[in-house]
Design a binder for these strands. Structure first.
Length: 643
RNA sequence: GCCCUUGUAGCUCAGUCGGUAGAGUGCAUCCUUGGUAAGGAUGAGGUCACCAGUUCAAUCCUGGUCAAGGGCUCCA
């Protein structure tokens, strides 16, 4: 029988490898890590050619599937090295993950990064030995016996949990591990790897179980790809909003005073204010109304809403005159009550309430992370109360708002629709109606989406939007949720055309999600070089010598009159020094005033890119800055300027 | 909460194999008036996170506490 390999037909060999060898050049064959069978399954190179197999695709290390194999095999190599150095360590699991792999070990003394050099050296020896990965099938009982004899109690537990009669084992050198496979042909393919960090991890991810010692590592097809990845990590560190926030004086944290809560410094607060102002205006333009509820509500209200039962552990409480109050972790209750404040007609619907609502949530201390995970934050929260037949239209409006906002910052994004989970309330009919409204809206908007089956909230289906920043990281921001419960619990109603009382449907949505978090993402996305429209300092006037002070102040005043956020640096320092400081502060426009400019008026303009535009008049400069600030709005159909 | 790492000047970090500490940067003052990424000098600034223990002596060793950072979702 003949087998198709990369477009040519070759005679089937005994093994996958021998078949491929007939079709590939020696050099290419050496780089193959595995093969993909006719039905898409991955095969070990050493494996016998499956019966009836009529096509094979070689998989290389650069291929995502090949890379995953390399990483999985790297986990085995690391485990083998650890077993050599620490024979008493018991192995547990070691999968490939997004950016590498890990392996969890049960050891008396947890590993630390100081153990890395020894482990890496041992790994190197194993890699250089080019030990083949040998697969073997074994009956379950036999496998249990094998691992019990080896003292690998965790493996025994895993084998016992596996369905079916046989399991597969892979051996490289003296190390044998339970593994589904496949693997790279030999350890030589794990030539570019690096151990990254250690962490504690619970057995099977359950905090009731024993704490294991996890070692994270990464591996690539070659040193070049590994180097590129390490460089990308370096780039991410360079963009870290916590560092940039400190350097650029945007915000600070005082762990001793208020852990997980932000102190907004003047520049950061200006950025926030501009974003808030823009966002409020945009909401007004799209038919939302601004509202605001109290910061704390009596505890009885939280009982009525269900938050006390379901969310109490994350809430802060206080008491006033012996009455218990809960500080709001969400804004929806006040919006419910605002709807219920008067009798509503179907003519009044939809009601769209928008609030930049400050909420408090008690996050566990270990999960706080700069602006991205805090305990007090501001949601760009809205609740739309509408008739069921308006639902799709309303959701479409929200999706358009998401699209326009993401476009404004140049974010790519991914949409996922989450459907009814096992545990949920509400009728099938309501779920069906809401889910089809969500799907219908996404389709009308022409957006590709995925479905997360059973991942909806217990009270309704939802759309989640994950944005991708400019270095490809994903962030969960926007969420659009349909909710049947709250209108029910608060007995909200409107009078329909028929004169009867009807229950409105509620859409809960946040686009930026948390303002704090969104600003953190923006800082990382732009690496601190914020676009002119919300840069806290759009321009800085620098003098060459003290003789330019008066002209600089005059220029500054005129630009301020033109609505430009400008500062001046009249310090007694050399120009090069001041230029550097402005550059480090990522100021978009640096305006230099020297003798020549003082005489002719205007300033010589240096951009953040380092480009020098030469002498420009005040009017020209104001025009440049303004045009730059308006640029991002050209695509979104939006329009905004802060003044 | 749990595991690993870390905690020294406003910031970034050295250092002391146990004898209470240093650099760069920033800040202040002075000199310097310099044309697009760092001019020079001088000075101020620290209960070495906190609490115990060991010791003649602890910032350093030991134990504990607090905080931060990396993880604790990826399942042979």
């Amino acid at each position: 029988m003949d087998v198709r390999v990369e477009g040519q037909m070759v005679e089937a060999g005994d093994s996958v490898a021998s078949t491929l060898r007939k079709a590939l050049s020696g050099k290419r064959f050496k780089a193959v890590v595995a093969a993909c069978g006719a039905s898409g399954e991955l095969l070990d190179l050493h494996a016998p050619l499956p019966a009836g197999c009529d096509a094979l695709t070689p998989v290389f290390g650069e291929d995502p599937r090949g890379l995953e194999l390399i990483r999985h095999s790297a986990a085995h190599v690391m485990a083998a090295a650890v077993k050599r150095l620490f024979p008493e360590a018991r192995v547990t699991i070691g999968p490939a993950i997004d950016n590498g792999f890990y392996y969890d070990f049960a050891v008396a003394r947890p590993f630390s990064s100081e153990d890395f050099p020894a482990i890496e050296a041992e790994m190197r020896r194993i890699v250089d030995a080019r030990q083949p990965f040998v697969r073997r099938e074994m009956g379950k009982a036999e496998a249990v016996e094998f691992f019990r004899a080896a003292g690998e109690s965790y493996k025994v537990e895993i084998v016992e949990g596996i369905e079916g009669d046989t399991v597969s084992l892979y051996t490289c050198g003296e190390f044998t591990d339970l593994c589904r496979g496949p693997h790279v042909p030999d350890t030589g393919f794990v030539r570019a790897s690096k151990l990254m960090s250690v962490a504690g991890a619970y057995w099977r991810g359950d905090e009731k179980n024993a704490m294991l010692s996890r070692i994270y590592g990464t591996a690539f097809a070659d040193e070049k790809a590994l180097g590129a990845y390490l460089q990308q990590l370096e780039e991410a560190r360079r963009r870290d909003h916590r560092k940039l926030g400190k350097d650029l004086r945007l915000f600070s944290f005082r762990e001793d005073v208020a852990p997980g809560m932000v102190f907004w410094l003047p520049k950061g607060m200006l950025v926030r204010t501009i974003l808030e102002d823009f966002w409020r205006r945009e909401h007004l333009r799209r038919g939302y109304e601004l509202v605001q509820g109290p910061q704390m509500l009596r505890v009885e209200t939280w009982m009525k809403s269900g938050h006390y039962d379901n969310y109490r552990d994350n809430m802060y409480f206080s008491s006033i005159d012996e009455d218990a109050y809960g500080i709001k972790p969400m804004n929806c209750i006040a919006h419910m009550l605002i709807f219920g404040n008067e009798l509503r007609s179907y003519r009044d619907l939809p009601q769209r309430y928008f609030e930049l609502g400050v909420v408090h949530r008690h996050e566990k201390s270990g999960v706080l992370h700069g602006l991205l995970r805090v305990r007090q934050f501001t949601q760009d929260d809205a609740h739309i109360l509408c008739m069921p037949e308006q639902l799709e239209e309303e959701i479409l409006g929200v999706i358009h708002l998401v699209r326009d906002l993401m476009g404004l910052f140049g974010f790519e994004y991914k949409v996922a629709v989450s459907t009814r989970p096992e545990q949920s309330i509400g009728t099938d009919e309501a779920w069906e109606m809401a889910t089809s409204a969500l799907v219908g809206a996404v389709e009308k908007a022409g957006l590709p989406y995925t479905v997360n089956k059973g991942d909806g909230a217990f009270y309704g289906p939802k759309i989640d939007v994950r944005l991708l920043d400019c270095i490809g990281r994903e962030w969960q921001c926007s969420t659009i949720q349909v909710d049947f419960t709250l209108p029910e619990r608060f007995d909200l109603a409107y009078i329909g055309q028929d004169g009867g009382r009807h229950r409105p449907v509620m859409v809960h949505r946040a686009i930026m999600g948390s303002l704090e978090r969104f600003i953190g993402i923006l800082v990382e996305h732009y690496a601190g070089a914020l676009p002119v429209w919300f840069a806290p300092e759009q321009a800085r006037v620098l003098t060459v010598t003290g003789a330019g002070d008066a002209a600089a102040q005059e220029l500054c005043a005129r630009l301020k009159d033109a609505g430009i956020r400008v500062a001046s640096d009249l310090r007694n320092e050399k120009l090069g020094f001041k230029v550097r400081e402005a550059q480090v502060a990522k100021v978009p426009y640096v305006l230099v005033v020297g003798e020549k400019e003082a005489q002719e008026g205007g300033a010589s303009v240096r951009l953040r890119s380092g480009e020098n535009l030469g002498l420009k008049s005040v009017t020209e400069i104001a025009g440049l800055v303004r045009a730059d600030a308006e640029e991002p709005f050209k695509q979104g159909g939006m329009c905004y300027s802060f003044s």
